[in-house]
């Protein structure tokens, strides 16, 4: 049914945006950023912040929120993660868990946990868009799909062909050797965190306009983490099929199975993947030990 397919692609796009953040940080720094979901929420609230300060200017608000989130990612690396270099990985992961809690608490402190809707503040609308085949999606659903496609295309080109992208891949593989080649890997790592912040912000901004904004959006990050693992934690290419599979299972379980399965379907997919192919669809086998 076309509606099932349409909804699957939309949900997959949202998961893909978040999962990209996990993979970027993991590929570059070997750290699991379990605060990615809360960075998505942060991006949404940055949008709200700029939108309340300057209502009716969507371009500025979106650009501002994305820039602020990228900066936040950069600072998170510089101030929190860089001092953890040389310490065991799980300690760094715990730092990200704490970071997520702190981010959420800070947001609640400033904005309480009332549900917000920046759409009106931005002066935008979210009308329904019928598609061929009878499916209907919202305008921001389409933006989400477009943003995910654009981000992945951009990341592919960046990592494959640009000097900085190649340096990022190099630093991700062997930071020491990268240093011996003149690459300041701390800068490269900080950049990967900034990109993760940016990807999270895209997800947060789009979701806030499409559905709602409240401090508990971070739970979506948990589902996206399962998506990242299904696709292979160190593979950006694996995110797309991983997201599609998980989203399809989720949508199908609502339509034809028990709707309550929908909530856990990312983790059921993960469980299945761990039994069959633990390193994910496109992950590297040796990464297994690190997870």
């Amino acid at each position: 049914m076309t509606q099932v397919l349409a909804t699957t692609v939309v949900v997959a796009s949202l998961y893909a945006l978040l999962a990209a953040g996990y993979v970027l940080v993991y590929r570059a720094t070997r750290v699991l950023n379990l605060a990615q979901g809360d960075m998505m929420t942060l991006g949404g609230y940055f949008l709200f912040l700029v939108a309340t300060a300057a209502p009716g200017e969507p371009a500025r608000a979106i650009a501002g929120a994305a820039a602020l989130s990228a900066l936040a990612g950069f600072l998170i690396y510089r101030l929190l993660m860089r001092p953890m270099a040389g310490h065991p990985i799980f300690a760094a992961v715990l730092v990200t868990v704490t970071l997520g809690i702190l981010l959420r608490a800070a947001i609640v402190l400033v904005y309480t946990d009332r549900i917000r809707h920046p759409l009106g503040l931005l002066g935008l609308a979210n009308p329904a868009r019928p598609l061929i085949g009878g499916a209907v999606v919202s305008t921001f659903d389409l933006f989400t799909v477009g943003a995910a496609a654009a981000l992945f295309a951009a990341l592919f080109l960046f990592l494959r062909f640009s000097p900085l992208g190649i340096q990022m891949r190099a630093a991700g593989e062997k930071p020491l050797l990268a240093s011996q080649r003149g690459i300041n890997f701390h800068l490269v790592f900080a950049l990967s965190w900034a990109l993760a912040g940016f990807a999270g912000a895209l997800a947060g901004i789009l979701y806030a306009n499409n559905v709602r904004l409240d401090p508990s959006l971070g739970v979506l990050g948990l589902k996206a983490f399962a998506v990242a693992l299904v696709g292979g934690l160190d593979s950006l290419g694996g995110v797309v099929p991983g997201a599609l599979i998980v989203a399809l299972v989720e949508v199908l379980s609502v339509r034809y199975g028990d709707p309550l399965l929908a909530d856990v379907s990312p983790f059921l997919c993960l469980l299945a993947m761990l039994l069959v192919r633990p390193w994910g669809l496109y992950g590297t086998k040796e990464e297994l030990e690190r997870v």
């Binding site: 509606q3 099932v4 909804t7 939309v10 949900v11 949202l14 998961y15 999606v137 979701y207 559905v211 508990s216 739970v219 979506l220 589902k223 949508v251 609502v254 339509r255 709707p259 309550l260 929908a262 909530d263």
Partner: peptide
């Protein structure tokens, strides 16, 4: 129709 609280998209439930 029971809806999980943190579902990303309500469309499938509405469709039902």
């Amino acid at each position: 129709v029971v809806v999980p609280g943190n579902t990303p998209d309500f469309t499938p439930f509405a469709q039902k």
